[in-house]
């Protein structure tokens, strides 16, 4: 079972890294979302896996899974929505105001009046 989780984290990160390296804003946003799935699952898994042991106190229960990573990941999931939304509106702004959704333009050619597009603001 541990190998399934480990490989799922690996596949999600690989797909995320590949998408982040694309040239347009939309795939980059998708890539950061995939990476955040991978990171969330990884953080959650760092509390080790346990089945049928939810961290809700009950009479007679002998073992509970680690609650701390769960609490940290819960807020991370909600915050990642906020961050995605901010990056999306930035991408949308750059597309609507310059008709261009390239993530980084190689060089501004001579006589090109348009400013180079904003670099992707996601950390």
């Amino acid at each position: 079972m541990e190998l399934l989780i480990a490989s799922a984290v690996g596949v999600l990160s690989a797909a995320g890294i590949y998408m982040v390296l694309r040239l347009r804003t939309f795939p980059v946003i998708i890539g950061t979302s995939l990476l955040s799935y991978a990171v969330n699952v990884f953080l959650f898994a760092s509390g080790r896996l346990a089945m049928n042991a939810p961290p809700v106190l009950r009479d007679g229960a002998v073992r509970y899974t680690d609650p701390l990573p769960q609490a940290l990941v819960l807020t991370a999931i909600v915050i990642s929505f906020g961050m995605t939304a901010v990056v999306v509106i930035m991408a949308l702004g750059s597309w609507l105001s310059s008709d261009d959704d390239l993530v980084d333009r190689p060089a501004v050619s001579e006589g090109d009046a348009r400013a180079p597009s904003m670099p992707e603001g996601d950390a």
Partner: peptide
């Protein structure tokens, strides 16, 4: 890009596997 992504993926898998297959080094 595929090579970079593949390397990243393998690293993530290895790291997760190492953590998941060993006990906590110090008590949480």
């Amino acid at each position: 890009d595929a090579i970079i992504a593949g390397a990243g993926g393998i690293a993530a898998t290895a790291l997760t596997w190492t953590i998941l297959s060993t006990e906590f080094p110090i008590a949480p």
